[in-house]
Structures are given as C-alpha cells and as structure tokens.
C-alpha cells in the first residue's frame, strides 16, 4: 500500500466530506515526518516511506474512528445551520440598515442642497395611499426648487411610482418644472423639484389622482 492508497482509504471512511482535506493533510504530514526521521537513520526513501505507512496501522480502522470524531450528522447540522444563519443575517442587515437610513432621512431637516431657504411651507397632503410632506422652497443660483418627502400610508414603504406623483403647473395647467430629483429607500422618498418661479408666486401641484393643491407662496411669507 502506498501513501496515496493509505490516505484515500482513510478518507473514504469519513462521511463528513468537509473535514476530509484537513485529516488527509495531517496524516500525510505525519507519514512524511516519520519517513524523514528514518531516512536520517540511513534508510532509503522508499523503505522509509513503506515502514512509515505500516506504522500508521489499518487505514479502514483509523478512518472509521475518525468518522466517529467527525460525525456527519453533527457536522452537516452545524454546516446547514451556519448557512441558514448567514443567509438570514445578510437581508436582516440590509433591512435594518435601510430602515435606519430612511428614519434618519425622515427625521432630519431636509437638505437645502446648498441653497437658501426662500419660504417654509410645511403642508401635509393626503392621497389615498400616500402622504406628502411639502417642506419648503429654496433657491440656488437663481433656480427655485421645492423639497418634499413622501411615505406610503399603508405599507410604510417608499412611494415608488412609475410616473411622477405630482407635477408643478401654472394656472393654465402647463408644467413649470425644469428638472427633478428624488431618492429614497424602503420608507420615504425625498424629492426636489426645480421650477420657474411664476410672477404671481402661486404654485399648483397637480397630483396623480387629479387633486390640485394651490400653494400661494405669499401666504407663507414670501415677498
């Protein structure tokens, strides 16, 4: 029996395959050590290796005993529970992380994106499923923008629309928006709408359920 055969025979007895490699490595190192010592005493490599393997004993018996120490049931149960825990932890961290991130987003004052406050509005608008918080109008580089947050009333998840939830229009119903930007996670969306300031300082927010909210900025203190 050569070294490879010996190790393979031991290996086959160990049913928990994930420990096989470590076992084979440990036994292989032992055989090498043993053979090396005998070569120092004057034996040839082949003789030394042959004796070293014989001194190891019966590979089937050794393998069976090792299998008891590396019991497949315990081994696999441990492995499976480890996998399940890891699979659960990843989404858990993602959810908790997003929840935390959104809560912070929602509680902290809305960023002005480097602009200056023009007027605070602080209006809440209820739609059948969503609630909008119209926060304020800011200005930066002569560009006016409206900031708002939105939350889904039913699921308390973010309000994901295929279309825009509302549009800023003038009295004729024409859009006065220039661009928009919104971001959010699972709970709330935070949005910005750039618009052309109308001469009369009145904004009309046209929501997707055709509700139109009139915001006369002068009423909120805009001059």
């Amino acid at each position: 029996m050569n070294k490879h055969e010996f190790l393979e025979t031991v290996k086959k007895q160990v049913l928990y395959i994930f420990d096989r490699q470590d076992i084979v490595y440990e036994l292989s190192e032992h055989i090498d050590d043993s053979a090396r010592d005998m070569m120092e005493e004057g034996l040839s490599y082949d003789e030394a290796l042959d004796i070293a393997i014989k001194q190891m004993g019966n590979p089937v018996e050794i393998g069976k005993e090792l299998n008891k120490a590396h019991h497949p049931f315990i081994g696999y149960t441990f492995l499976i529970s480890k996998i399940i825990i890891i699979l659960n932890i990843i989404p858990m961290f993602l959810c908790v992380g997003m929840l935390g991130f959104d809560t912070i987003n929602f509680v902290l004052p809305v960023s002005t994106r480097g602009g200056e406050d023009v007027v605070e509005i602080k209006e809440t608008i209820e739609l059948p499923t969503e609630r909008f918080f119209i926060d304020k109008v800011c200005v930066k580089d002569d560009t006016y923008y409206l900031t708002y947050r939105s939350i889904n009333n039913i699921t308390y998840t973010r309000t994901t629309y295929g279309m825009r939830p509302f549009l800023i229009v003038d009295e004729l119903g024409q859009s006065i928006e220039r661009s928009s930007n919104s971001h959010g996670g699972w709970i709330c969306d935070i949005g910005f709408r750039e618009f052309e300031m109308p001469d009369d300082k009145i904004l009309y927010l046209k929501f997707i359920d055709h509700q139109i909210i009139t915001l006369d900025l002068t009423e909120y203190g805009y001059e």
């Binding site: 004993g57 050794i62 005993e65 120490a69 590396h70």
Partner: peptide
C-alpha cells in the same frame, strides 16, 4: 502504538 490511531483520539479529545 499504531501511529495513525492517535488521530481519532486527538480529534475526540478536541471535541
């Protein structure tokens, strides 16, 4: 002793 039989003993002691 048969040297290979040490390893099951060691692994059990470790368990």
């Amino acid at each position: 002793m048969k040297e290979g039989t040490l390893y099951p003993i060691l692994h059990k002691l470790e368990n």
